[in-house]
């Protein structure tokens, strides 16, 4: 009898903990990934709103998956070149970022803006690289808004710049990420 009681308690705590666990996981409600690779000569920028991301506030893990062919350019020819010649989206359909917050984690019980360093692997164009991105997180009501601004160097990810376009295409790409998370429901 005692045995059964114990087992039940364990099971019960377990079920509760499952419930709590789910509350720690957040999923994208909306996302906006914008990059600018232009120079004074030419505006080369695109926006992608089709990314998905999961955030675990307890472990500080974050994972983002970006469909490369969903970047919208203002000129269709640029978009075609991006897909055909630079990102080679047929070969490399997705970019990803898998990371963990470093020691300075946020307290998500308080509705206050906090800045964390996220360290992890960034995979673009088939190349994986260790990357550190400063991310600011803000919780309001049930939503968490994450924003990050960083730069990537095209050469790091084996993305060629043709000599003829050196003046138009920058060697560093500025990336803006904004993701709004909502609690994940199974």
């Amino acid at each position: 009898m005692k045995n059964l009681k114990n087992s039940l308690t364990i099971l019960f705590t377990f079920l509760i903990s499952i419930k709590l666990l789910c509350q720690d996981i957040y999923v994208t409600k909306a996302s906006e990934i914008h990059f600018f690779a232009g120079t004074i000569m030419e505006d080369i920028d695109a926006i992608n709103t089709k990314s998905t991301s999961f955030l675990n506030t307890k472990t500080g893990e974050v994972s983002i998956l970006i469909p490369n062919n969903q970047f919208q350019f203002k000129r269709s020819l640029m978009q075609e070149h991006f897909n055909e010649n630079y990102m080679e989206t047929e070969k490399y359909p997705k970019s990803s970022f898998k990371a963990r917050f470093m020691a300075d984690s946020c307290d998500f019980n308080i509705e206050k803006k906090c800045v964390v360093s996220t360290k992890g692997t960034l995979n673009i164009h088939g190349v994986t690289k260790e990357t550190l991105i400063k991310t600011s997180l803000e919780k309001s009501n049930d939503l968490i808004t994450a924003t990050a601004v960083f730069e990537i160097i095209l050469a790091d990810f084996d993305i060629d710049r043709p000599k003829i376009l050196l003046a138009k295409l920058a060697d560093r790409v500025k990336v803006n990420i904004k993701i709004i998370y909502e609690p994940y429901k199974k």
């Binding site: 998905t52 472990t59 898998k98």
Partner: peptide
């Protein structure tokens, strides 16, 4: 296993 319920597997399922 549930704690580290892999965010990747969640992502993949979502995909």
């Amino acid at each position: 296993s549930a704690v580290s319920q892999n965010l990747d597997s969640l992502l993949n399922a979502n995909e």
